[in-house]
Amino acid sequence: MDAADQEPPKPRIVKINSTETWDSHLQQSKSDGTPMVAHFTASWCIPSVAMNPFIEELALVFNDIIFLTVDVDDFKEIANKYEVKAMPTFLLIKEGVVVGRLVGANPDEIKKRIETLLQSNSQFVV
């Protein structure tokens, strides 16, 4: 099979469709240390929707991270629990704990924060 036959890589973006799905990803992050970026969005929020293609690009580049999309209208209880009051809001989660928060559509800043999240996740061997 040559390169032309291969499917393009799919971004690892999970659309949260239940509180159980959210809880299971949080538990996975706790147990295996997988870093996560949660994008709190709403279909009516233009800046939030405009970030979707950028988040897909990030998910292709940072394939060690699980990206989650949470629609605040569908899952108000999750948004309330994490005090999400504006969209888009991005939560950076490590080992099940929120270690960073970014409010607003700022592609450069979210990329910088993801790079920092990954650097803090790597193990240094002396």
Score class of each variant (00 low, 15 high):
4 A>W: 13
5 D>V: 10
6 Q>K: 15
7 E>N: 14
10 K>D: 13
12 R>T: 14
12 R>Y: 08
13 I>Y: 06
14 V>P: 01
14 V>W: 06
15 K>I: 10
17 N>D: 09
20 E>F: 12
20 E>W: 03
20 E>A: 09
23 D>T: 11
24 S>P: 04
26 L>M: 08
32 D>T: 03
36 M>R: 09
37 V>R: 05
39 H>C: 04
42 A>I: 04
42 A>N: 08
45 C>I: 05
45 C>H: 02
45 C>E: 08
46 I>G: 11
50 A>Q: 14
50 A>N: 13
50 A>H: 14
53 P>K: 07
57 E>I: 14
58 L>H: 00
58 L>K: 01
61 V>G: 00
62 F>N: 00
63 N>P: 05
64 D>A: 01
65 I>L: 03
65 I>N: 00
65 I>K: 02
65 I>A: 01
66 I>Q: 12
67 F>W: 04
68 L>T: 08
71 D>P: 01
71 D>I: 04
74 D>Y: 01
75 F>P: 02
77 E>Y: 01
77 E>F: 05
78 I>V: 01
80 N>T: 12
80 N>V: 12
87 M>D: 01
88 P>Y: 00
89 T>C: 01
90 F>C: 05
90 F>I: 00
92 L>D: 06
93 I>T: 02
93 I>H: 06
95 E>A: 03
96 G>A: 00
97 V>H: 08
98 V>G: 06
98 V>Y: 02
98 V>R: 09
100 G>C: 05
103 V>T: 13
106 N>K: 15
108 D>V: 12
109 E>C: 07
114 I>T: 15
115 E>Q: 10
117 L>N: 11
119 Q>F: 09
121 N>Q: 13
122 S>Y: 14
122 S>K: 15
123 Q>N: 10
124 F>P: 06
124 F>W: 15
125 V>A: 07
126 V>R: 13
126 V>F: 15
126 V>T: 15
